[in-house]
Design a protein around this nucleic acid. Sequence first.
DNA 1: GTGGTCTAGACCACT
DNA 2: GTGGTCTAGACCACC
Lengths: 132, 132, 132, 132
Amino acid sequence: MWIMVDPRSHTPMYQQIIDDIKTRIARGAMASGSKLPSIRELAMDITINPNTIAKAYQELEREGVIEVIRGKGTFVASSTPAEARDSARRVVRDMLTKTLVEAHHLGVEFIDVAKELERLIADWNQAKEGQA
Amino acid sequence: MWIMVDPRSHTPMYQQIIDDIKTRIARGAMASGSKLPSIRELAMDITINPNTIAKAYQELEREGVIEVIRGKGTFVASSTPAEARDSARRVVRDMLTKTLVEAHHLGVEFIDVAKELERLIADWNQAKEGQA
Amino acid sequence: MWIMVDPRSHTPMYQQIIDDIKTRIARGAMASGSKLPSIRELAMDITINPNTIAKAYQELEREGVIEVIRGKGTFVASSTPAEARDSARRVVRDMLTKTLVEAHHLGVEFIDVAKELERLIADWNQAKEGQA
Amino acid sequence: MWIMVDPRSHTPMYQQIIDDIKTRIARGAMASGSKLPSIRELAMDITINPNTIAKAYQELEREGVIEVIRGKGTFVASSTPAEARDSARRVVRDMLTKTLVEAHHLGVEFIDVAKELERLIADWNQAKEGQA
DNA sequence: GTGGTCTAGACCACT
DNA sequence: GTGGTCTAGACCACC
């Protein structure tokens, strides 16, 4: 796996790995049940401390995004964990609100934010169809 | 001022203050040129160390959100959309992308994200009119 | 006098006044022996606290740039104070060094710094001739 | 590292540290990617509070002069001339103008300022070759 | 009165 | 080990 991590970034490396894997799954690049590289394997690939990978995997498991099967490996979980359903809307709304605040201070019109979102969704869906 | 800070949160307190103030300004709750509470005053109010407030104010000034007038106090800057309109778009797009990734994992449909955004913008504009 | 002071700037207002007056004299806009506005007069003009003006004048007198004649007013001093001669070169060299350091970090070539300096000197001399 | 800081100076200690490090890098005394002393280490050396060093390092990182790698240390950034080439010129011009103003008051001829600058550049380049 | 700097010493997150 | 955050309390410069 060709994960890119930037040690200079202020977001911790383990978080970057989490974000990267979540994005892949979300984009459809990794299907449910597909196998993730082992910790040691991935650590070699991106020359990073295995502990850092382990921490990322641990957190992803905690969030229900991946599943660890002892002796077999780690796999993309089948679907959204049930308990998260409730807070989902709130999380999304908070992120959108932060985006609007930032847009305001950067002088970007709200209408342009909405347009940008629609464009991103369109691109996304198109990419998924391409993979199907 | 009734800023709420959670000392247990993972985002640093000074950052929470920054976010809070930026949100207020973006929402129109604090007009251009209006005075912010003095560092010591705010520190008393939310029982936090003045240095922490000072750090937040300094960062806000660096971002051009507020202005410091020596010996007088700190004030909301007259909105400076700045020259960096290009990078602004990129920032917004990145935030939206992260939101979509998160939405996917939480099982929220993209169409609902778009609807939520439109609802937020509508609320926002309405609130601003209410203040005018 | 039409001094421009920016209360938002991080350089203190009294220092801005000092810099402004020194620049005028250097540029030849104020000749030796010419009278400066009184503290109260200037304070009214730029709507600033008289104490701030007083501090600027005091510092300028200390540096030998202006002279205060009791009951008459304050005037541009005749020439460079004698004692400063020694350290003059060092001060200029330090300022140039700082400029080079900054230029390096900003990615400006040294040759361009030298060219810029020559251009500035040329402009300056031309302006002076225009006034003569 | 043998940084000299004068606690009695009017320019804050953290700024003196910033200036010193920027000068070293510009002079070529510290190459891209080389490691800076850790905050605590440097704090011990010059018997100064670690927080003061931290503030200097943070500002240097903000300016893109150094890079922080979490848990590893801080390193000289690979020279980033950045996109702001335009404003760079303005900064340099302003510094040169201030230098000329000061030179005039100190009785230093402009031609001597230009000569001094050329001498400094020559010395600088020579020193860099010596290190290569 | 305002914000800016510095110290001493603590605790935490990341690698 | 590294840097980042926070506190308590001090002193200073500016207006």
